[in-house]
């Protein structure tokens, strides 16, 4: 069993993601109670999970970037890039689901007072520029260095932007967590945790699938060189 797991880590991860996503959708629609917020609450479970997953992806990308610079780990460059790519996909999902929520909650598709949405817009622009930077530098150690330094800037930009946006706008985004712990009923919190785990597992699966594809690309290129 354990050797099977070791050899089929990606398949196991995909199965876990599948089970968790199914379970979380079932919990959201059939188990979690509808509170004063109305059905709108049902967007929240996924929206927040997706947003936190995007942060996790950016953080993972930053960690791998640090390893590029610090340990001169050559594989980490590709891993950092793929993690940030996942982060941008989940960031875009956050923007869209958050926008739907804002339309429902406040009647506008875009709400400049909605701190999380503005923050994600800034991060989205930043990481889109990351891809521009990466694609305009020829592949090699130089590109790995430049991408890694820029990814580290992103890690610093997140707290700085949170601070900046909190300073500049009044605060109307509903807060799910405060100093007294989760601000919701137990069954809702459980549903939320399962949704978050589901999104993290989904992101991890997509990350490994993309990474495997990129690695196959590299191996094929090496093979072509060897056969020539």
């Amino acid at each position: 069993m354990s050797t099977w797991l070791r050899n089929n880590r990606l398949a196991a991860l995909a199965a876990l993601a599948f089970a968790l996503v199914t379970a979380s959708i079932a919990l959201v629609f059939f188990y979690a109670p509808v509170d004063a917020d109305g059905l709108n609450q049902k967007i929240f479970y996924f929206h927040v999970g997706v947003a936190l997953t995007a942060y996790a992806c950016f953080g993972w990308g930053g960690w791998k970037a640090l390893r590029v610079l610090w340990k001169r780990d050559e594989d980490a460059d590709l891993e950092s890039y793929v993690a940030i790519h996942q982060g941008v996909i989940f960031g875009a999902l956050t923007l869209v689901t958050g926008s739907i929520w804002a339309r429902y909650r406040w009647g506008h598709w875009w709400e400049w007072h909605e701190n999380q949405l503005v923050l994600f817009l800034v991060l989205f622009l930043f990481y889109a520029a990351y891809f521009m930077l990466r694609f305009s530098v020829p592949a090699g150690p130089r590109r790995a260095n430049l991408s890694a330094v820029y990814a580290l800037f992103g890690v610093a930009l997140v707290p700085v932007s949170i601070l900046a946006i909190r300073l500049s706008e009044r605060f109307i985004h509903p807060v799910a967590f405060d100093r007294n712990g989760p601000n919701m009923a137990g069954s809702q919190f459980f549903t939320f945790c399962v949704s978050l785990a589901a999104m993290l597992a989904l992101a991890a699966t997509l990350y490994h699938v993309e990474l495997a594809g990129k690695r196959i690309d590299v191996r094929l290129r090496e093979l072509r060189e060897a056969l020539r």
């Binding site: 800034v122 991060l123 520029a129 930009l157």
Partner: peptide, 8 residues
């Protein structure tokens, strides 16, 4: 690459 970092 500069403008997103200049927003704060």
């Amino acid at each position: 690459i500069f403008l997103p970092l200049a927003i704060p």
